[in-house]
Each structure stands twice: as structure tokens, then as C-alpha cells.
Design a protein around this nucleic acid. Structure first.
Lengths: 138, 138
DNA sequence: TATTGTTATACTCTATAACTATA
DNA sequence: TATAGTTATAGAGTATAACAATA
């Protein structure tokens, strides 16, 4: 993995390296990567439907169902029918889900901090900015 | 996908965005992403064994076999037993494989160029450097 | 008629173990 | 006995189509 590789290969390598470093943390908290992604998305606020949530995290809506089933059974999220459109189900974090997400997020930030060691604050800021630019330039 | 997301999520988002943009190019040239990764690795020179190649690109050695079968049938790579250790097979690009890789690489660089539009040369350099740092900090 | 949530099914990708031939 | 390549198989992950309830 050197700097003259394709950018996609570099992103994949960095992403895989980060995911490997974060896996033990997630295991320790009994969450899969996708479950954590769902909690993170919901930590910004409740979502009006499962379909919206699926699109937001770029996950298949049919696979999201089993994921939410598990999280609901664990008491971390709640699904309630939308009074305005009874087809849709509002999804939100429970208070326990909120606590759990905050704990995992903090632990993951520590891991990222270790991986970023050696990069200046300015470099880190530019890295995040550039990655966000790439992710949104469709 | 915003800048305060987890770094792993940002990498994944950028990587997915790049992969989606490159897919049409690879399709057009009749190559899968992993086939292209193999050609790229071999473009730096022949590799002494399939096992070494698998480790180099972080791909499962058992899955690599079918991949090489296809590439060999297409005339893009060649496998020859190593005279020094007849268990091992040296893998190298054919001249056609070399041509094909160069063509795809150029097309992919054009795509990346489009995705990177708006980022200064210095920012691009720092991005590659930071990603390489993350990928190699184990 | 279209949409949300859901289930079932098939398909792909990936990991594991076992076999062969060489060392 | 250990290793490179290979094959087969089982498991996880993913995509597609179809159905019930509601709009």
C-alpha cells in the first residue's frame, strides 16, 4: 500500500485497517459494524421511516429489518407506527441505546486517535474534509 | 456523510463513491475490481508465488486461484513453475496483460481526476500521504 | 396504483478444511 | 513434517421478487 496506488485502493486499505482496529471495540460492546452505523445515524435524532434510514446509511432496506429486530430485542432502539402514515414506522434510540452508542463512540474515537498518531491537527482536518468531498462528489 | 462522522465511515463512503465511479470503466474493459488489483500488483514485476501475491493484495489464496484461471484464460497473465521450487508458480503479466493494465489504469486515473476536482495539488498529496499512513499503521 | 414493511428465495462472496505434489 | 497449489463445502452476506397493509 504505497502512495502511488490508485486512490480507491488507498481508501480501501485505510478503511480496512481502521475497521480491523475497531472490531475488537465493537465485539467488546456486542455490536456489529452495521448495528453501530444504525445507532450512529439515530443518535442525530429519530428517523421517520425505515426506508429513510436505509437510504441514509446506504444499506438494503430488506436487510435493515433483521438488524432493527436485533437492536429492538436488545432494547437499544424503538419502532413506533407513524400516526400520520400508518405504513411507516418511526425509529429512534432508547435511552439505553443512547448510552450504549455514546460509550462505543468514545472507545472508537480513542482507537482512531491511536491510528492518527503522527498526523498534525491541520492534516487531520484536511483528511476529513477531503474524504467528505470524495464521498459526496457524485 | 459529514466531516464529524467516524473516520472509518468517511473512508468507507469515499471508497464506495470511488468504486462506483470506477465500475463502468472496469466493466467496459471486462475486468472485475479484484482482477484489476491483480494486474496492478503484477505491473510492478513478476511475483515468485501465488501465496506471495495473495498476501500482497490481501486476498484469500484459495479465491485467488479462480481469479488467476480467468486472467490466464484471457491471456493477461502467465503461470510458470519455479525451477528452484517446483511447488511454487511464478506469476507474471503477459505483454497483452501489460497493455490492458496500462489502458485501464489511465482510464481510472481520469475518473479519479474528476472526483478530485476542486482539491488543490497540495491537498491531494496530503490526502494520499495520510491514507497511506493509516493503511500501514498496524 | 403506489409505497412501507416484511418474508422467502436465490445468488454471490468468503472462510474452512482436506487433498496432491513437492520440499 | 511442512508448504504451494488446488478443490469442495458450508456459511455469511447480498440482491430480487412477491405479499400484506396502508396511502
Amino acid at each position: 500500500m504505497t502512495e502511488d496506488d490508485d486512490l480507491a485502493a488507498l481508501c480501501a486499505g485505510a478503511g480496512r485497517s481502521l475497521a480491523e482496529a475497531e472490531r475488537p471495540v465493537l465485539d467488546q460492546h456486542g455490536l456489529s459494524m452495521w448495528q453501530y452505523v444504525v445507532l450512529s445515524a439515530l443518535s442525530a435524532g429519530a428517523v421517520p421511516s425505515q426506508l429513510v434510514l436505509a437510504q441514509q446509511i446506504r444499506y438494503d432496506k430488506t436487510r435493515l429489518i433483521a438488524l432493527l429486530d436485533t437492536l429492538e430485542a436488545a432494547g437499544l432502539v424503538a419502532r413506533e407506527p407513524d400516526p400520520a402514515d400508518r405504513r411507516a414506522r418511526v425509529v429512534r434510540l432508547t435511552s439505553e441505546g443512547s448510552r450504549r452508542h455514546a460509550a462505543v463512540r468514545d472507545a472508537i474515537r480513542e482507537v482512531e486517535e491511536r491510528k492518527l498518531a503522527g498526523l498534525s491537527p491541520e492534516t487531520r482536518r484536511q483528511l476529513r474534509s477531503a474524504l467528505a468531498h470524495l464521498a459526496n462528489s457524485d
